[in-house]
Every structure is written in C-alpha cells, then in structure tokens.
Amino acid sequence: MTPFHLLLVDDEVADAELFEEVFREDFPEVRITRALNGQEALDYLARSETDPTVATPQLIVLDLNMPVMNGHEFLERAKAHDRHRSIPVLVLSTSAGIKDVQRSYHNFASGYAVKPASYADLKALIQRVSDYWRGAVVLPRIDQLAD
C-alpha cells in the first residue's frame, strides 16, 4: 500500500497516544504527526508548503476542545486557505452536541465521529477510518494542486 500521512490534532496526550497506538497496531506503515492544538496544526501545514521534508497530510483527525486554538477555529482558518481546502478533516470529539456537529460541517469538515469510550470501539472506528480514507475513496494529490 502507498505511504499515507495523517495529522492528529488533539491536546489530550493520553487520547492521542491511544489513538496512535491502536492505529499502528494494524497499520504500521501510516505516518502519524501530532499537534497539540489548532495553531500547531496550522503551523505544521504552513511548513509543509515550504519545506519538502515536511509531508502534507492526506487526512487530518481533529479534536474540537483544545487550548490556544480550538478545532472550530482551526477548520475556519485551514479551509480558508486554497491549498488546505482539499485536505479531508475528520472531527473526532467527545462532543455529540448538534451545534458542534453542524458547525464542523459548516466549516467543511469531511466527517464527524464521537470519541469511543472503549478500546474495542476505538479499534473498530480506526478500522473504518482506514478502510474509508485509505481504500474506499480517491484523495486529491495535494502536491499537485495549483496554488
């Protein structure tokens, strides 16, 4: 399978470590980069535009409730940038609130899922995420997009 790069944006270190651990169990070839908040994620995306050693993610998994810049603010800013607009963003939040869901889709999230409460449910979700984003859909070639 071709290399796949995922940017995980979550300030909860334990959640991020568990997500990464479970993902790597079944998909060790996936490169996961972590950011602790929306600002770090935006900074990473900016570096990916100018530094050829920084890979542009093919999927961003985004928490909503974070300090410095939350997930909603990140979506607004990232999706306002032409080059970032095509990167799919899956919101993965503890919130199941309709306002969070609606606002995420309004700001061009590609999907929304509630963080699972159990290890088995997280493993199942990650399998579905991988099946969909790494197999079922055709993703844009970010490196070939015109600015």
Rank of each mutant, 00 (worst) to 15 (best):
T2E: 14
P3V: 02
F4C: 02
F4E: 05
V9C: 02
E12P: 01
E12V: 11
D15A: 14
E17F: 12
E17R: 12
F19E: 02
F19Q: 05
E20G: 05
E20Q: 14
V22I: 15
R24H: 15
R24E: 13
E25M: 15
P28K: 11
E29F: 12
R31N: 13
I32W: 05
T33W: 02
A35H: 02
A35L: 06
A35F: 01
L36E: 10
L36Q: 05
N37Y: 07
Q39R: 11
L42K: 02
D43G: 11
R47C: 07
D51T: 08
P52Y: 08
T53P: 01
A55K: 10
A55T: 07
A55Q: 12
P57C: 07
L59I: 11
V61T: 08
V61G: 04
V61D: 10
D63V: 05
N65G: 07
N65D: 13
N65K: 15
P67I: 15
P67M: 15
N70Q: 10
G71D: 13
G71R: 11
H72E: 14
H72D: 12
R77Y: 03
A80L: 06
A80I: 09
H81Q: 12
H81K: 07
H81M: 07
D82Y: 01
R83P: 01
H84W: 15
H84V: 01
R85G: 00
R85H: 06
I87Q: 01
P88Y: 03
V89L: 07
V89H: 02
L90M: 13
L90V: 07
L90G: 01
V91L: 06
V91E: 02
L92W: 03
L92P: 00
S95V: 09
I98T: 08
K99E: 13
D100Y: 04
V101H: 00
V101D: 02
V101C: 00
Q102L: 06
R103A: 04
R103P: 00
F108K: 13
F108G: 01
A109T: 06
G111R: 04
Y112R: 08
A113W: 10
P116Q: 13
A117F: 12
A120G: 11
D121E: 15
D121Y: 03
K123T: 10
K123S: 12
A124R: 13
L125W: 10
L125V: 14
L125F: 14
V129Y: 09
S130P: 00
D131Q: 15
Y132I: 15
V137A: 11
V137S: 10
V138M: 14
V138G: 11
R141I: 08
Q144H: 12
Q144A: 03
L145K: 05
A146H: 08
D147L: 09
